[in-house]
Design a protein around this nucleic acid. Structure first.
Lengths: 344, 344
DNA sequence: CTGAAAGCGCTTACAG
DNA sequence: CTGAAAGCGCTTACAG
């Protein structure tokens, strides 16, 4: 039993041409007479020939592989972004190598070494950061780096960020406009750049507005943490009536606790704003007012940058705007009762 | 600017040994004196050398890459499975190539061709099926195939299935035991092997028990379809009081519609059973009684089979049991009120 | 234990 | 337009 796929040599022999010719047949733009091309294509088809990307990658110094480096890849937001990225990559003729990390420097380094050993054309970081020295090694090898929502930059890389702080500020304004008297900030203890920025924006605006607020930060970024956050915030003697939660996943936990354990009416007795616009935020049971991450835009910009353009030595940076998605967890007091009905 | 990573040649020169020696240094079990190894390791470290898996894959006919072929990869169940698979693969020293399909034969074929061109050691199918002829080509090249929840088999491949029909049957029994008088079967129109089996088991058992039931099948497998299903089922003149929904995602949609649009109390006025045990099924707002897919077991069995063992010519098959997860969407009537309280 | 040499499957100047 | 030849970075018998 042959354990080898057909090679260019096999095709060449069958078609009665040189190995070079069959190579040209599969490299766009190479000169080849229509007749020869036809003969080669037919032979290739007959043999089930597929060019070996390992070999061609070795020669051309371009593998068509790009590494996706991320932690917690089954989380709603993360998996959505990964999906968008994978799809765009495929449309651009690239292929995605998924590498799971646990966010530790060690595992991120490990991931990047994997990427290097497969000579990926690029690496996209959704979690963690490559050490400066390793990043330089990558660049020297012609590998491109894109950093999504990371707080540092690396020379030669593309950095895509959201204006997280602005979202925190807008959340405060919104909550105050809804008549909330006592604000709450809920976040995980993950200390991820995006979360920290959202928190900072919130504190800044709340302080500037002279608003009273309390905050709770704990645990990993999860639904369960949301439940704990809800318990902590809602058992306070003077509990908040307007909460900004740095992540939808946690906000869902807060909503459930408020509703099912305390019977708190949302948005009448408690207004809540999340971040990410995960699918569940749009579910009827949550209808969460939140800020959406422009996932398709992030994915598009990332792969556009990867496939086009020359390598530069400065870092490029693009700042995207989260968009406010109004749903039904923030009380609307500006609209009178009758107008409210007319609007529906 | 050097655009090339350090190669074995560079390391060999720096360490004053042959290229063969540095190759041996990085292949487990190759004979090499401790002294030489030490010198090589040091040189490699200094140069930031990583063996080029493209070149080694070419020679050894083993790339360490395994393709994950799936549709709708950001769905809760799918992304969870993908995450487990990726993790196990990494632990086994392999790396995951993620390929997105849209389930059409065409895109599945495309995906497999991609896998072939990168000479992946294996392909794991979570969606779609490789055409018989293509599958044979793969096997001939020594590529291993694992099919998860697929209805056909392919010689030489591993097929992992769940006893979906049995779950459908158990759902009927459970609903009947809960005192439901009129059953409902809710499913998407996706015609996926797993769904069809779950439906079949339900119909079989319902018919055998002489139970009255209605069914609704429509749309893709999504939360939104669940909402439609809920509308269709709950607006019936004689609506069901016990529903088996072939997927948790859709079940969540049904719950929300029942609760928020019709004010139906769950489980008092409507019992509901799902399938998959996605994270949301465990959320406080749903607390969905459901069947769990043994995801970790599926992942473990898949990669164990891949890394160990000889290629055989018959297809192997393993049948896994979905496990009933009792939560709070099925009415409990066997337990008297006082006993009920004692149990808590 | 170690090295020289052949070979994996491709691409790409270089000539013609 | 086409082929012969060199070379990408590795591994692996084969000798010593």
């Amino acid at each position: 039993m042959a354990r080898k796929a057909a090679s260019a040599k096999d095709v060449a022999e069958l078609a009665g041409v040189s190995r070079a010719a069959v190579s040209r047949c599969f490299t766009p733009g190479a000169s080849l007479s229509p007749k020869t091309r036809e003969r080669i294509l037919q032979a290739a088809d007959q043999l089930g020939y597929q060019v070996n990307r390992l070999a061609s990658g070795l020669i051309r110094n371009e593998t068509g592989i790009v590494a996706l480096i991320a932690a917690e890849i089954s989380t709603p937001y993360r998996s959505h972004l990964l999906s968008a990225l994978t799809e765009r990559l495929q449309q651009a003729g690239k292929v995605a190598l998924m590498i799971n990390t646990d966010r530790s420097d060690d595992s991120v380094e490990q991931a990047l070494r994997h990427a290097i050993s497969y000579r990926t054309d690029a690496a996209i970081f959704l979690s963690g950061m490559p050490a400066r020295s390793l990043a330089e090694t990558c660049l020297r090898n012609g590998m491109r780096l894109v950093l999504i929502n990371r707080d540092e930059e690396r020379p030669g890389s593309l950095r895509l960020r959201l204006d997280d702080a602005e979202a925190g500020r807008r959340a405060v304004a919104l909550l105050l406009a809804a008549g909330c008297k006592r604000l709450g900030l809920a976040s995980s203890a993950a200390d991820t750049p995006s979360l920290t920025e959202r928190e900072r924006g919130f504190r800044e605006a709340a302080t500037a507005a002279g608003a009273e607020f309390i905050e709770e930060r704990r645990g990993p970024t999860s639904y369960e943490t949301g439940q704990e956050l809800g318990m902590a915030l809602l058992t306070q003697p003077n509990r908040p009536d307007g909460i900004f939660c740095t992540t939808d996943l946690m906000a869902c936990g807060i909503i459930d606790v408020a509703r099912w354990r305390f019977g708190i009416a949302i948005p009448d007795d408690l207004s809540l704003i999340g971040f990410d616009d995960i699918a569940q935020a749009g579910w009827e049971g949550y209808a969460l007012t939140t800020f959406s991450q422009p996932i398709e835009e992030i994915a598009a910009k990332s792969v556009d940058w990867l496939i086009s353009g020359e390598q530069k030595n400065e870092a490029e940076e693009v700042l995207l705007e989260p968009k406010l998605i109004m749903r039904r967890t923030v009380r609307q007091i500006y609209v009178s009762d009758t107008e409210d009905r007319r609007q529906q």
